[in-house]
C-alpha cells in the first residue's frame, strides 16, 4: 500500500467551506420550479382535491365541509346514463384495443416485407393521426350519413335492402364511433409496430429461413414474442387514449341518438360545466382515474417492478 503521507501541505488560504446542500445547483432548482409546481400542485394537488371533493355534497360550488361519504358514487352507479357510458366505453375499449393492435401489426408487417412505395403507404396510413378528433368525428359523421353516405350509395348501386346506419341506430352507434377512432389512431400503432419490427435483428430472419420456417409461422412463433415490450407499450397507449375519448363523440354524435353513445369523459364534463352537479362530476372523474390505475399499476409493476431505475 504505497500511499504518500498527507502531512505538510501549504494552504495559503483558509479551507473553503463545504457549500450548503440547499444552494447546490441552485439555478437548476430554480429552473425546475415550473416542473415541480406542475408535478405537485397540478398532478398531485388537483387530483387529490377532486378525489376529496367526490366524497362531498358539492353541487354548484365545491362544498368541502359537507361530507357525504360514498353517496355520490352510489348515485353515479344508479344513473342510467353513466351505466350506458361505461358499457360504451367497455365495448369501444375492447374492440379498439384488439383492432388497433391487429390492424397496426398487420400493416406494419406488410410494410416490412420490402415492398415498393413503403413511404407512400406509411404516409397514407398515418395522416389521420395528424387530424383532430373533431375533424375525424365530423368527416365520419358525413361518410356514415344514412341519406347521403355509404348506405345511400350502396343502395343506389342496386342493393336496395342494404342498411348501414350506425349513427342513427342506438344499438350499433358505438361501432360507428369505433370505425372513426380506428381510422384516426391505427396508423400510429402501425408506426410503433414498424419501429419494433425494424428493431429485430436481421439474423433472426436469416436463421428462420435457413431452418425453413414459413414466414407466417415466423411472425407468430418468433417475431411477436420478441416484440412483447412493443405490444405492451402500444397497449398502454391505446388504453390511456380510450379513457380520454371525448371530442370524437361530441363531434360525431353528440352522445346520441338519445344517450346511446355517451362516454364517461363526456359525462364528467357535462356534470361539471353544464348541469352544475360537481359532486357527480368529481365522482365520475375519480372512477376514470381508478380505471386508468387498473391498467397502469400492473404495467408499471411489470415494467419497473424489481429493478430500480437510476
Amino acid at each position: 500500500m504505497a500511499v504518500t503521507d498527507s502531512g505538510g501541505t501549504e494552504s495559503a488560504r483558509t479551507p473553503a467551506k463545504k457549500p450548503n446542500r440547499l444552494f447546490k445547483n441552485l439555478t437548476a432548482k430554480l429552473a425546475s420550479v415550473p416542473m415541480i409546481l406542475t408535478a405537485i400542485v397540478v398532478f398531485i394537488g388537483c387530483t387529490g382535491w377532486t378525489i376529496y371533493h367526490s366524497f362531498t355534497k358539492s353541487r354548484l360550488l365545491p362544498a368541502p365541509d359537507k361530507w357525504v361519504g360514498l353517496d355520490q358514487y352510489e348515485r353515479l352507479w344508479s344513473t342510467r346514463r353513466w351505466l350506458v357510458s361505461i358499457e360504451n366505453l367497455a365495448i369501444y375499449g375492447i374492440c379498439s384495443l384488439v383492432l388497433s393492435l391487429v390492424i397496426g401489426f398487420t400493416l406494419a408487417a406488410l410494410l416490412d416485407r420490402k415492398i415498393r412505395g413503403e413511404s407512400v403507404f406509411r404516409t397514407i396510413f398515418l395522416y389521420p393521426f395528424a387530424l383532430s378528433f373533431i375533424v375525424t368525428g365530423l368527416v365520419w359523421q358525413w361518410v356514415l350519413n344514412p341519406d347521403f353516405g355509404i348506405q345511400s350509395v350502396v343502395q343506389r348501386w342496386g342493393w336496395e335492402s342494404f342498411t348501414f346506419d350506425p349513427l342513427n341506430n342506438a344499438d350499433i352507434v358505438i361501432y360507428g364511433i369505433l370505425i372513426a377512432g380506428i381510422w384516426q389512431g391505427s396508423g400510429f400503432i402501425m408506426v410503433i409496430m414498424l419501429a419494433g419490427l425494424r428493431g429485430i435483428d436481421e439474423d433472426i430472419w436469416k436463421a428462420t429461413r435457413v431452418e425453413g420456417i414459413p414466414v407466417w409461422k415466423t411472425y407468430i412463433v418468433v417475431i411477436i414474442p420478441m416484440m412483447r415490450p412493443v405490444f405492451v407499450t402500444a397497449l398502454v397507449l391505446i388504453a390511456a387514449g380510450i379513457i380520454k375519448v371525448y371530442d370524437l363523440v361530441v363531434a360525431q354524435t353528440s352522445g346520441g341518438p338519445g344517450i346511446s353513445s355517451e362516454v364517461p369523459a363526456k359525462y364528467v364534463i357535462e356534470k361539471m360545466f353544464q348541469s352544475q352537479n360537481l359532486g357527480q362530476g368529481f365522482a365520475a372523474s375519480t372512477m376514470m382515474l381508478v380505471s386508468v390505475l387498473v391498467v397502469l399499476i400492473p404495467w408499471a409493476y411489470l415494467e419497473f417492478g424489481g429493478k430500480r431505475r437510476d
Binding site: 398532478f43 382535491w49 377532486t50 364528467v268 372523474s285
Partner: peptide, 19 residues
C-alpha cells in the same frame, strides 16, 4: 418530480380540470 410528471401524463384531464 420527473416520475410524478410522467405518471401524471396518464391521469385523465377530467380529474384535474375543475381545480
Amino acid at each position: 418530480f420527473f416520475t410524478i410528471l410522467i405518471f401524471g401524463a396518464f391521469i385523465p384531464y377530467q380529474v384535474m380540470i375543475y381545480p
